[in-house]
Design a binder for these strands. Structure first.
Length: 141
DNA sequence: GCCAACGTTGGC
DNA sequence: GCCAACGTTGGC
């Protein structure tokens, strides 16, 4: 089981929206590196949901319940024959007891090489197991 | 509101 | 296939 980190602009779609909907298809990702991460997801994997903008914090946990599959709105395959615009279905698992802020992550040197810190524009990334444990502890997830 | 760090586009 | 110009994201 791998844990990922998914960014979202809470004004567009927040973790609370996912809780309300119970389930959603995570569409709209177009960055190639982010899409590669989505293609590597498997049913049962989990994802921290991170709010960009004013919040800049991990606020909850979701689980991959289906996919990755081709976005029906944007069909097509890449050079490897995989869906170009890959999508997964998520369900809300749990809200973080205490949000883990970007400031806290940046302030801990264990996270210095983490993609969230190194590449601020990347919207989907795998979280290394050692770091995942730290985040879960901090967040109460 | 600015700008750094990317991605993308289009002319050649 | 390169790369200059432009667009976008997201932190500050």
């Amino acid at each position: 089981m791998t844990t990922f980190l998914l960014k979202t602009e809470p004004g567009a779609y927040s973790f609370d929206d996912l809780v309300k909907d119970q389930k959603t298809d995570w569409t709209g990702v177009s960055n190639p590196a982010a899409l590669a991460a989505i293609r590597s997801m498997r049913k049962g994997d989990q994802a921290f949901i991170y709010h960009t903008g004013d919040e800049k914090a991990i606020v909850g946990l979701a689980e991959v319940v289906a996919g990755p599959y081709e976005d029906p709105e944007q069909p097509g395959v890449n050079a490897e024959g995989l869906p170009k615009f890959a999508v997964v279905d998520l369900r809300a698992v749990k809200k973080a007891k205490s949000p883990v802020t970007l400031g806290r992550i940046k302030g801990d040197k264990r996270f210095a090489e983490f993609a969230l810190v190194r590449q601020s524009r990347l919207s989907v990334m795998a979280v290394p197991a050692a770091l995942e444990k730290v985040v879960r502890k901090w967040a109460g997830l």
